[in-house]
Design a protein around this nucleic acid. Structure first.
Length: 559
RNA sequence: GCGCCCAUAGCUCAAUUGGAUAGAGCAACGGCCUUCUAAGCCGUAGGUUGUUGGUUCGAGUCCAACUGGGCGUACCA
């Protein structure tokens, strides 16, 4: 039995007692939660408060009557230790040590799978993230999006979603034309020409590198090549390679790179226009085509086709989302930076008015990363080449710390990233606290082998050779209890799209382990007790390692 | 001006989504290594949860107004 299991049992017990006391069931399912203060027990319910106004009795009285009925009916003493009423009306449950210790068995049985669940029920889910156009290297700002998106995808996979990771990009727009032109200018410059480099072109050093590569391979043969030919193409290729390499360093890869351009080539853009026309949601004005957003609850009408005949970004975004629906995704997760905060409502509005179920779309907006260097804010701009690349950051603090740093914070918060501090504190980064616990356990297990307490003596081929009930110490129970929470934490992280919950949880695990380690020796002459403690260590190591896998950080055997 | 997001210890963040005494990590101070990793453990200090009202048994959490910051408010993406 696990924590969700026990909640169901308690629910049944409480409901029955409630009914036998008052003649009917509570209006809503009773809530069970862990009290912050552990002296109040392991789980607590607030049914009495919820029923107070209906029953016209004090919550305290109601709680007392419920508990009285529960005692009369009896309950499983092997699991439930005590049931108490506390003012002003909580009912607190305490469980037995053996119940908590049983988690060790569960963890060891499930091993690398412990923590997986099937609440996602195989739902076909798409997570779209990064989606940066290939105009320059990924910056620290993209890093937050990339790491968060990848981890959300992991969490969803662990809860049974069938996940597709997707990167949406455009290699046809104005940005890309400017990119090609930028490379061509640098190319001509390398050929000895004196050029004027416009301010609105891409200033970065990488543009020169690309031009240099073209020069090395083709010499001056490209002097008459248009910017949007070989120059743009080469830039796109190199930059994309670079982006993929950077993402790879963080353990991130995509299943699909979706090119916006294909939406034009396959006529999807035209289909959307036709559908909006048919729905009477468009009109022409000032030479442009407008989406009548105000007719369906929007704040103001928006241009979808410019007077130049070019669509605005909204149109392909709408077409892309229709494609997502057509491809059969039951859940579409879009991860954007806060600069897109104004764009998605139009897109969703259009989808909804065309009859699509926008409930399936979940847009997650993360706040920006503010970079501090030398005590000053660094304003990032790809075009002005004023940025700190994600690659540089990884060089400085390592991939694990980068991932961890971005995941620690809720995406709703503005993230201040002090580069100097990050470099300095790289050795004191909180990620090490967790990894150290894992390495420490690995070390203990090695030591145990040396001392003749082999892992095979504890467990082999699924056969357990230890008696978990030998564990009596407070820290042992605490650790085991904490380990058992892992599956519901992963579930909560998936439901709320908040992977940072897993970090907070793993910190609890590490803390519980370190405390246990500090007070109790594992490898001791009493081989029976040693075996039980090794089993506990194994379980802790497994939970840490599984958590690390979700977060995408490594689980070192040594540090 | 309008819209969305944010404000919690000196710093960076939590708080089981409305629950009981608001918690961690850095930074500061004090203690703990002849025994499995001291990247650790234990303790001390640090708060009118931006301000003011409201909703109810109960508010960091919900509502309103205000203050300060971010991002939008393009026929840029």
């Amino acid at each position: 039995m696990d924590n969700t299991g026990i909640k169901h049992i308690l629910e049944k017990i409480v409901n029955e007692a409630f009914k036998s006391a008052f003649g009917f069931l509570p209006a809503s399912e009773p809530n069970f939660e862990k009290p912050k203060n552990e002296s109040y027990g392991d789980l607590s319910t607030d049914v009495a408060f919820k029923a107070a106004s209906v029953l016209r009795k004090s919550p305290l009285r109601i709680a007392q009557e419920i508990v009285e009925k529960v005692s009369q009916a009896g309950y499983d003493n092997a699991v439930i230790d005590t049931i108490e009423v506390a003012a002003p009306g909580f009912i607190n449950f305490k469980f037995t040590d053996n119940y908590f210790l049983s988690f060790v068995d569960r963890v060891i049985d499930a091993g690398a799978e412990f923590g997986r669940s099937n609440v996602g029920a195989g739902k076909k889910t798409q997570v779209e993230f990064v989606s940066a156009n290939p105009t320059g290297p990924l910056t620290v700002g993209h890093g937050r999006n990339a790491v968060f998106g990848d981890t959300v995808a992991n969490v969803l996979q662990w809860t049974g979603h069938d996940v597709t990771r997707e990167y949406y990009f455009n290699n046809a727009g104005r940005q890309m034309r400017v990119l090609g032109a930028s490379v061509k200018l640098r190319y001509r410059e390398l050929l000895g020409e004196k050029i004027e480099f416009p301010e609105d072109h891409y200033q970065g050093e990488y543009i020169r590198d690309i031009a240099k590569h073209l020069l090395d391979e083709r010499g001056s043969a490209l002097a008459d090549e248009p910017p949007e030919g070989a120059f743009k193409q080469r830039a796109e290729e190199e930059i994309f390679e670079d982006i993929k390499k950077t993402l790879g360093r963080l353990g991130i890869s995509f299943d699909v790179f979706y090119n916006e351009n294909s939406l034009y080539e396959t006529g999807k853009i035209k289909e959307v226009i036709a559908a909006l026309d048919a729905a009477g949601l468009t009109y022409e004005s000032e030479g442009a085509k407008w989406f009548r957003a105000t007719a369906v609850g929007g704040a103001q009408d928006k241009v979808i086709v410019k007077s130049s005949g070019e669509p605005t970004y909204r149109l392909p975004d709408i077409a892309y989302h229709i494609e997502k629906f057509r491809r059969g995704f039951g859940l579409v997760v879009d991860i954007f930076g806060s600069d897109h905060i104004a764009t998605y409502p139009d897109v969703l509005l259009a989808l909804k008015s065309l009859g699509y179920d926008t409930e399936k779309v979940r847009v997650l907006i993360h706040q920006f990363v503010t970079i501090f260097q030398n005590g000053e804010v660094v304003k990032m701009s790809t075009r002005k080449a004023n940025f700190i690349t994600l690659d540089e950051l990884i060089d400085w603090v390592g991939a694990d710390a980068v991932r961890f740093f971005f995941l620690m914070r809720n995406i709703g918060t503005h993230l201040n990233f002090d580069i100097d501090l990050a470099k300095k504190q790289s050795e004191e980064n909180p990620v090490f606290y967790l990894q150290y616990a894992h390495a420490r356990i690995a070390s203990i297990l090695r030591f145990a082998e040396d001392e003749g307490v082999r892992l095979d003596d504890v467990i082999s081929g699924g056969v357990r050779k230890f008696d978990i009930a030998l564990l009596k110490e407070k820290e042992e129970i605490e650790l085991s209890k904490t380990l058992g929470n892992f599956p519901e934490v992963v579930e909560a992280a998936a439901v709320t799209f908040e992977p940072n919950r897993i970090i907070s949880y793993l910190q609890e695990v590490a803390e519980a382990f370190h405390r246990f380690y500090h007070l109790h020796r594992v490898v001791i002459p009493d081989h029976n007790l040693a075996a039980s403690r090794i089993a506990l260590c194994l379980a802790a190591k497994t939970v840490l390692a599984n958590g690390f896998r979700i977060l995408g950080i490594s689980a070192p055997e040594k540090m």
